[in-house]
């Protein structure tokens, strides 16, 4: 039998909230030490709930919770800083990161480094940093954290270090394979580009594009056929021409 677990004032971000019963919510949270957790916020939808201002996405906060099993009960939520303000494409990017975390993290697996990266990525988005490199670095860290990181240092055939001047074809579930001229139509990148992508160095446009295609393929593989709703909604919004597409 599970014993009652009690967590006091852990740094956390809210990822998503769903209405639950008359006046409560079920919230998905990313905690610094507890990873993704599901909590019931009792009464959080009442008109005078003390959590109204705090329980919102991209708001740095500390939370306390207690309970047993996969769905525990929120005890306290206090803002620790101003909410990070994201608009337009940057807001969509924030939601996209939230959806990735909800879909790819198992509840209760700790990911303290990922928590730090998530906070840093949100800060970078709200400060107006270039959007695509921020997202690609976040995806790199996320995949590495869940054990499906890109292989960008050795080839998948005989584990030799990648040679910068050589061309490699990236096979989704294996890694880079020395490319054979004229064979295959997969994604072919130079060793130098793969090494740079592994370091999160996207100085050249072809590296950013290569990283995007590699990561997209790997993420889709990890999602196992589930499609991301933020991607679909973004596509609909881009077709209106109100939000400027940077092609997410």
């Amino acid at each position: 039998m599970n014993s009652i677990e009690r967590v006091e004032f852990e740094a956390a971000f809210l990822l998503h909230a769903m209405p639950y019963r008359e006046s409560s919510q079920i919230i998905e949270v990313l905690g610094q030490h507890h990873g993704r957790i599901g909590l019931v916020a009792r009464g959080s939808r009442r008109p005078r709930s003390r959590w109204k201002q705090t329980l919102r996405s991209f708001q740095p906060m500390r939370m306390s919770w207690a309970g047993r099993g996969t769905l525990q009960t929120l005890g306290a939520a206090e803002a620790t800083a101003r909410p990070l303000v994201l608009t337009g494409m940057r807001l969509m990017a924030g939601w996209y990161m939230n959806e990735l975390l909800i879909n790819l993290l198992h509840r209760g697996d700790p990911h303290p480094d990922l928590f730090a990266h998530y906070g840093a990525a949100l800060a970078a988005l709200s400060e107006g940093k270039e959007l695509e490199p921020v997202l690609r670095r976040f995806e790199l860290v996320l995949l590495a954290e869940i054990g499906y990181g890109l292989v960008t240092d050795r080839d998948a055939v005989d584990a030799q270090p990648l040679q910068p001047e050589r061309m490699y074809a990236y096979v989704a579930d294996r890694g880079p394979v020395p490319a054979v001229v004229g064979a295959g139509d997969g994604l072919v990148l130079s060793g130098a580009d793969l090494l740079a992508i592994g370091r999160g160095d996207f100085d050249r446009p072809e590296r950013l594009l290569g990283a995007k295609r590699l990561l997209r393929e790997k993420l889709n593989w990890c999602l196992g056929g589930r499609s991301l709703k933020t991607r679909q909604v973004l596509a609909a919004m881009l077709s209106d021409g109100v939000i400027d597409g940077i092609g997410a």
């Binding site: 998503h16 769903m18 969509m92 939601w95 996209y96 939230n98 959806e99 909800i102 709703k229 933020t230 679909q232 909604v233 973004l234 609909a236 919004m237 209106d240």
Partner: peptide, 19 residues
């Protein structure tokens, strides 16, 4: 309201009618 994580986008909100 727009809520991409719930799959609610412009289409679901009748934005084409508003437009």
């Amino acid at each position: 309201r727009l809520s991409p994580l719930d799959g609610i986008g412009p289409l679901e909100l009748g934005i084409n009618l508003l437009e």
